Computed example of a mutant assay.
Amino acid sequence: MAKEIGRVEPYAVPVSQAEEERVQQLAGESIVISLHDHPMLLPEDVMNQIFDYNREARVVTPYEGLSKSCWDAIFDNLLDGEGMIVSKSGWKWEDTIYDLGMTLSDLAHQDFVIVGRTVNDIIRAHNEGKIAFIPAIEAATPIENELDRIDILFGLGIRMMGVTYSESNGLGSGLSEENDGGLTNFGREVIKRYNKVGMAIDVSHSGDKTAADVIEVSTEPVFITHVGAKTLWNIKRFKPDDALRACAEKGGVIGIEAAPHTTITKTHPKQNIESVMEHFEYIANLVGIDHIGFGPDTMYGDHVAMHHAYSKTFSLEKVFAADTEEVPYVEGLENPTEASWNIIRWLVKHGYSDEDIKKVVGENALMVLKEVWPKS
Results as ranks from 00 to 15, higher is better:
residue 5 I to S: 01
residue 8 V to N: 11
residue 11 Y to P: 01
residue 13 V to W: 10
residue 21 E to S: 12
residue 26 L to V: 08
residue 29 E to Q: 14
residue 29 E to D: 13
residue 29 E to R: 13
residue 36 H to R: 09
residue 37 D to T: 12
residue 56 E to I: 03
residue 59 V to M: 08
residue 62 P to F: 06
residue 70 C to S: 05
residue 72 D to P: 03
residue 74 I to D: 01
residue 81 G to R: 05
residue 82 E to Y: 14
residue 86 V to K: 01
residue 91 W to H: 11
residue 96 T to V: 06
residue 99 D to H: 08
residue 108 A to M: 10
residue 111 D to K: 13
residue 115 V to F: 08
residue 119 V to T: 06
residue 123 I to Y: 01
residue 131 I to V: 14
residue 134 I to L: 05
residue 143 I to G: 00
residue 144 E to P: 02
residue 146 E to R: 11
residue 156 L to M: 14
residue 157 G to F: 09
residue 157 G to L: 07
residue 163 V to P: 01
residue 169 N to C: 13
residue 171 L to E: 00
residue 173 S to D: 02
residue 174 G to Y: 04
residue 177 E to Y: 00
residue 187 G to M: 02
residue 195 N to Y: 09
residue 199 M to H: 06
residue 203 V to P: 04
residue 203 V to I: 15
residue 206 S to H: 05
residue 207 G to W: 05
residue 213 D to C: 04
residue 214 V to A: 03
residue 217 V to Q: 09
residue 223 F to L: 09
residue 229 A to H: 02
residue 230 K to T: 02
residue 230 K to Q: 15
residue 232 L to M: 03
residue 233 W to L: 09
residue 233 W to S: 10
residue 235 I to E: 15
residue 237 R to Q: 09
residue 238 F to I: 00
residue 239 K to E: 12
residue 241 D to T: 09
residue 243 A to K: 00
residue 250 K to D: 11
residue 264 I to L: 07
residue 272 N to E: 05
residue 273 I to W: 13
residue 273 I to E: 05
residue 276 V to L: 03
residue 279 H to C: 08
residue 279 H to W: 07
residue 285 N to Y: 04
residue 286 L to N: 05
residue 288 G to S: 04
residue 289 I to D: 02
residue 292 I to N: 00
residue 292 I to C: 04
residue 294 F to N: 02
residue 297 D to E: 01
residue 300 Y to T: 02
residue 305 A to I: 02
residue 306 M to S: 03
residue 310 Y to N: 08
residue 312 K to W: 09
residue 315 S to E: 13
residue 320 F to S: 04
residue 323 D to K: 13
residue 333 L to T: 03
residue 340 S to D: 08
residue 353 S to G: 04
residue 364 N to P: 07
residue 365 A to V: 15
residue 366 L to K: 07
residue 367 M to V: 13
residue 368 V to P: 06
residue 370 K to P: 06
